[in-house]
Nucleic acid binder design. Sequence first.
DNA 1: TCAATAAATGCACTTCCGTTGCACTACTAT
DNA 2: ATAGTAGTGCAACGGAAGTGCATTTATTGA
Lengths: 138, 138
Amino acid sequence: MKEIEKRLNDNGVRPTAMRILIYKYMAEKEIAVALTDIENAFAKADRTTLYRTLKTFEEKGIVHQIDDGTHISKFALCEPGCNCELEQDLHLHFHCNNCDETICLTEQKIPHINLPDGYVAEDANLVLKGICEKCSGQ
Amino acid sequence: MKEIEKRLNDNGVRPTAMRILIYKYMAEKEIAVALTDIENAFAKADRTTLYRTLKTFEEKGIVHQIDDGTHISKFALCEPGCNCELEQDLHLHFHCNNCDETICLTEQKIPHINLPDGYVAEDANLVLKGICEKCSGQ
DNA sequence: TCAATAAATGCACTTCCGTTGCACTACTAT
DNA sequence: ATAGTAGTGCAACGGAAGTGCATTTATTGA
């Protein structure tokens, strides 16, 4: 528990009760979560608080936002020490068309792409869609 | 003009006046367009018609939908003969953080990715974000 | 310690996009 | 010509993102 507080502090985020709970929730889930998911999990908390907490976490490099093609923003905790902005830390995400869950495949990095002249890449988002491990095994 | 009619017919879409206009509009733009863009371009047409036209086009393989991370669906014409579902035809998209435009880089295919055991990929979406040719040259 | 200040949270509301149901019109085929 | 199908237009709904402001909670400095 103290670890979470430390992690937040280290990233310049004041460890309030709410923030610790949200962090804990995301750490327990192994999949990317949407704002609505958190909202349902914490019925008492206000949507705006959760929304702004995620924004803060994102700015401070605690979570990264994932766009899995569902038009709903998902978020997942960054690996400790990861630097999401750097190309080498850009991993891909997998969206299961069956269970509708999205997970980080942190081991699978996005390959470097050669762009035509004049294009400068700053960020990349790669989402594979299909059937996940859990669903294909059944 | 007759070419467009033929293209639509070939893909099993009846070439109505509206559809031809929309196709023409998309052919002239070289960037991916959102529903709202088309709506603004054809003030007289109803949003629903445009929406359903795009859906039809998509089903019939005339356009493909792009999720560039802006939370707004964009659409672009498929290359003639392209088969969007097939892995080999999956190209990447580039979203410019400056002019906010999204374009297809049809020459740049998405590299094949080796997934962990149990994962089956059916589709892929790769969007690079940064500065486009037009904006970087200025 | 206590007031002054800043940060975090909660509430209400708006906007925008995607989507659907239903009625009406235009086209097609017999 | 008429029945049936496909296309279009109107109205409305729902979900998610985002914002402004009031209130509470935490921090700081005298």
